[in-house]
Nucleic acid binder design. Structure first.
Ligand SMILES: [Mn+2]
Ligand SMILES: [Mn+2]
Ligand SMILES: [Zn+2]
Ligand SMILES: [Zn+2]
Lengths: 149, 149
DNA sequence: CTCCTAAATGAGAATTATTCCTATTTGGCT
DNA sequence: AGCCAAATAGGAATAATTCTCATTTAGGAG
């Protein structure tokens, strides 16, 4: 990781009021590098290559804190394991049930449509944090990506 | 359960090519009675009152089969336990993170909007089974319902 | 820079959620 | 009524996550 990225991540943590520890920096960095919404265990495998001393328990604890601090998004799934996303921009998820993959789908026009639709709605007894569109289905060729145009 | 409901559920199972066993009838019936997207364990608790011999393992197996047969929908969550829905009509879910509640939100206009939006999209390498809007946030008063109008 | 302390971590036990195994039972068919 | 493939009960096994506690560390104070 470049010195620049490392410093940037430290700042993100500090600004959020979190100690910039090695496990936290390493986990957040790995998550930022990934676009596949990894699980705690997958992140631990990757982090372990550079920092073999980071424990799986710490990865779980770190992720909990990062989610709490809104530095990381926790993705909804149909079971299995918890999955995480460091991409906080508004986007949708394509869930492939057969492969357990979660692929990002960016569509500013759709985001706008939904935002406007809810803008004129009255929501009571609830504080909305985000609205997410889930596209569920089955990937045909597991090796290639899904495209929507 | 009325004789009518009982017969109806038996037919649903038969039509799906599933043996109409007591555990299946009881689980599907309980799930149909509920609008709170219960977990396997919650369903087992409820089913046990009428049929104490139905095991938790069977509830898990039954739910797996019902999902496979498209008689039941498996809801996406941010972890904890798997949750189920017998309501197969197109609708949205309001996720209350603090209370773990999942409330239905019906909005035909929104369904239409999304359906039309995707109607003119080309999706490749993917067979879409459903598109679901998740409204995430925190419930203010846990005792009363959330409303969106 | 060194010291101090609250906060975070590593290691492993414990808990929770789910799946698997196998002897027994049962629903649906003849 | 009898048959048998399929499903179940009960319990063991596994997977995923959380907890406990002795030790370490980040970051502020001096
Ligand atoms: Mn889950
Ligand atoms: Mn689990
Ligand atoms: Zn994403
Ligand atoms: Zn629902």
């Amino acid at each position: 990781m470049t010195e620049k990225t490392y410093q940037h991540i430290k700042e993100l943590l500090s600004e959020a009021g979190l100690k910039a520890t090695h496990p936290r920096i390493a986990v957040l960095h790995e998550l930022m590098l990934s676009d596949e919404h990894p699980s705690a265990e997958q992140l631990h495998d990757r982090v372990s290559r550079q920092y073999p001393s980071v424990s799986l328990g710490s990865v779980y604890r770190v992720l909990e804190k990062l989610v709490e601090a809104d530095l990381v998004y926790q993705v909804a799934t149909r079971g299995g394991s918890k999955r995480y996303d460091a991409n906080l921009e508004q986007h949708c998820h394509i869930y492939s049930i057969n492969t357990e993959e979660i692929q990002d789908y960016y569509d500013p026009e759709l985001n706008e449509l939904i935002k406007n639709y809810f803008h004129e709605k009255q929501v009571s007894n609830f504080k909305i944090t985000d609205i997410k569109l889930q596209i569920n289905g089955e990937k045909r060729d597991p090796k290639s990506k899904v495209t929507i145009v």
